[in-house]
Design a protein around this nucleic acid. Sequence first.
DNA 1: GGTCTAACTAAAACACGTTTTAGTTTTGTT
DNA 2: AACAAAACTAAAACGTGTTTTAGTTAGACC
Lengths: 231, 231
Amino acid sequence: MGKREINRDEKRQLIVTTARHLMQLRDVSDFSMRTLAEVAGVSSATPYALFGSKQAVIAAVMDNDFADFMAALTAEPNRGFDVFFSLVDVTAALFEKNPSYYRTGAQAIQATTDQTLSSHFSLPRHGLLKDLVSDAIERGEICHQINPDSLALNLGHQFYGWIQAWAKGNITLPDMVARAQYGLGLGLAAVATEASRAQLLEQVVAIQATLPEAGVLKTKPTPNKKQEAVS
Amino acid sequence: MGKREINRDEKRQLIVTTARHLMQLRDVSDFSMRTLAEVAGVSSATPYALFGSKQAVIAAVMDNDFADFMAALTAEPNRGFDVFFSLVDVTAALFEKNPSYYRTGAQAIQATTDQTLSSHFSLPRHGLLKDLVSDAIERGEICHQINPDSLALNLGHQFYGWIQAWAKGNITLPDMVARAQYGLGLGLAAVATEASRAQLLEQVVAIQATLPEAGVLKTKPTPNKKQEAVS
DNA sequence: GGTCTAACTAAAACACGTTTTAGTTTTGTT
DNA sequence: AACAAAACTAAAACGTGTTTTAGTTAGACC
């Protein structure tokens, strides 16, 4: 690797680090490319040259975190269906440590129209879920007619949606956990073999008791701040 | 109602009609407030005075459609769990008639941070689902421990997510139907009473066979057109 | 009829993401 | 050392959504 590539990678790293830093600043949920460039001591054209878009920068920032996530997850003992539930717990624990950071990240992923970017994110996460489902099938907890790919996609989709709801500020973090686990529990109970099903449904009903009514939205004064762009 | 209010309502209607018209123009998936104002023959400040934001304008446009939706839905005979599946079919049929229109609408709903707006949409739709679930419980198709509110919220959330995936161009319309029905089928199968469960699972497995692999994304060249704003 | 006021207009302005242009370094190669 | 190519910079520009300002119009009320 020539010095050319080294320098470029260093600059990429600099931008990513700066972006991460800006994303972590609370009360400044959004940072502009102009300030990013300024803080990084770089021309505002450079991030575009190196990444292509603001979303790609944020994507690069969040890329480093999947490893952390996997580590945190595999640290937990995973017996039976509990892996799926702790998947949610682990995620929420991460979010709680650094809300504005993950909020910004989630929103960026969601806002992107770039398929490369979004699949860059979803694929490894989908792979993880798919493996968990496959394991459960092998253990005989999920009936074998189920295609791991399809089920994992569905579970991941639900989870992702609740994360987005949290990122948008529509639900609180505990709510996100409850709703996601409720959804995962339902999806799993549907395909669970008879032995595991009853207990799973019990869990679901228990979670259900903690869920707030729909329509009771978080009362946020909505300070009528500048609206986001639409399209 | 004095002439003042009448005029204001007429102008509101004019803007909504124009906006709907612009949203329906294919190949112009996004319209700007400037062109909206120009076409409507109105100052570009007026829509902001009357609605507050672009999203609110689009929201007002889509508001007229819930009635159509309900009509299309209740036209179908609804036996058992099929209501839920035809809910998806009816929606897809509407989308097919006017893709760019619904795409723009869905994206606007999704992009809004205004809780008033988003609940303005989700609430009536949630109410519909909740009623369907309640009916199913009364008919003894869903076990009575289930809270209609929670289940309906989960089903609606899944459906909504797949609609968004379609609106973003990540999946095709038939895919959206299959994935949404797969998800609804799962959710229902989980809580179905024994009598209905077996048949529901059969349906789910049948749908599963039609689902494409995850990760096989719609190959769209991504012409690197101007990116959307992030935050 | 005269005046007050809300509604509207036109136009400029702001901040943003992004692109373009033109000039300047820095690096690899001959 | 000289050159070519790539990387980077600074600054302007474009098109957004949105807000502001100042001025005009039209209904309401005495």
